[in-house]
Write a protein that binds this DNA or RNA. Structure first.
Lengths: 245, 245
DNA sequence: TTCAAATGTCTATTGATATAGACAACCATA
DNA sequence: TATGGTTGTCTATATCAATAGACATTTGAA
């Protein structure tokens, strides 16, 4: 790990936030695995070329996120460092791929609504604008920790009752199975990144300025008929995607 | 587009930066296509619930990026709004997919080095740690505008001279062809997101606090033998990825 | 020509950010 | 139990970020 380079001065983003990002990245990359601790505040201050108080602000933010825990007299211990891997493959089975990485994977239904398809949703689901669709607002957690927040649309007549099915099975796959769709495939996925907004920050327990990985995905049944369109927002510092071709 | 919601107060990230991000997003989503202009500063200030001076700081930042141009007495004109789409498919042809979106796609070789494979690189390329590899540092531009910054490793003995070939053809595909590898496939791709560091900020002409989309990809020849491992950093506000399964 | 609407510039004030230094409290261990 | 290394707390100061108000300058259209 030799030495983290000095931070450069940026306008618009507080120094302590930039340093928090750097330390979070270093932790997640295993730079401090030998000791299981972050270097002393004075050392970090020297490495980054900033005042010790600034480092303390950064560490306080990381402690708030539950990543580190400071103990007076000893040092700052690393509490969590994992980054969940989400495979993006033709056969979409989020829960399956995650099973070995987290003990408890849950999907919570935050809201359900029946509404008319917008032009964009209609295009993705091969419907006419105004056709009825069901919208689900869901939150995925790994070991009690929120990982992603998704908004999904389904053709209303084919998937009536999917809200209740999701609430019961806590996953899209199980909800589909409950409604008689035993298999489906991922058709297209778009990936972008952006800063988190207010609502997502709250749901995903993010600190201000955090990054989201955003996927827009369309799934079809085995006949190629669209069954789901969804926009998912992932906490970027907790996940990575893997695309296997 | 009705109305952009009020921004919330965040610590650590300057308000004007958050607002710049929101406006950039609105421009790229086509919200202001009718007029080709951003709403007046006073209107934006009202929409976001901030002072006009704060909006001006945001617009100044966007002007610095070349996205808008303010004209006294008229308004603030939109100069650029595109977001390049990069398909991530088995057959990786970056230049091909981009052809219809940008007039001029270039790949510049920033640096070339022959070095020993680290443990990680060796693992990806199915080599032994310490085996010779060639590392290329490249920069991709679309219409003179930097889009991504990549670091790629190749087995040295098989692809000796790939630096010169890349400099000549300005793409990995052409460089491979020059060296007798006419076809190759994308084996695995990992996608993450993070804030840009100093070096990438400079190369990609990013403003402080900008987001990077990061891919780690391994390509093989048609026999499944690894030919390239690369880490690419994309300016997140200029691109999106599309995964077609 | 006049006027409304838009951006440009200036001054002033408040709170957040960053630096600096000093010292207290706590922990592990020699 | 003494000591060195570490985090916790306090005070003080300078700079940046954000708000507020006033007015100048430019443009396009009535």
């Amino acid at each position: 790990m030799a030495g983290l380079k000095q931070v450069q001065r940026q306008t618009g983003v507080a120094l302590w936030r930039q340093i928090a990002d750097r330390i979070r990245e270093a932790i997640s990359s295993g730079a401090y695995d030998e000791t299981g601790m972050v270097p002393p505040e004075t050392v970090l201050a020297l490495q980054f070329g900033v005042n010790r108080h600034t480092v303390r602000s950064a560490l306080a933010a990381l402690a708030q996120e539950g990543i580190v825990r400071a103990v007076q007299g000893r040092g700052t211990l690393i509490e969590r460092k994992e980054r969940l891997n989400f495979p993006i493959t033709k056969r979409t089975r989020f829960s399956a791929g995650i099973g070995d990485q987290a003990r408890e994977m849950r999907g919570l239904l935050l809201d359900e609504a029946r509404e008319e398809a917008s032009a964009e949703i209609a295009r993705w689901l091969h419907l006419k604008p105004g056709d009825q669709v069901i919208r689900l607002e869901t939150l995925r957690q790994a070991d009690k920790r929120p990982v992603s927040r998704a908004t999904s649309w389904f053709p209303a007549e084919r998937f009536a009752g999917i809200g209740a099915a999701y609430r019961k099975g806590e996953s899209i796959t199980k909800a589909f199975a409950e409604l008689g769709l035993s298999d489906y495939v991922r058709a297209t996925t778009e990936v972008t990144a952006a800063h988190a907004g207010a609502a997502d920050m709250a749901d995903l327990e993010l600190t201000p300025g955090a990054i989201l990985l955003i996927t827009k995905a369309m799934n079809t049944d085995l006949d190629g008929v669209p069954v789901q369109y969804s926009i998912s927002r992932f906490a970027a510092d907790r996940v990575q995607f893997t695309i296997e071709n």
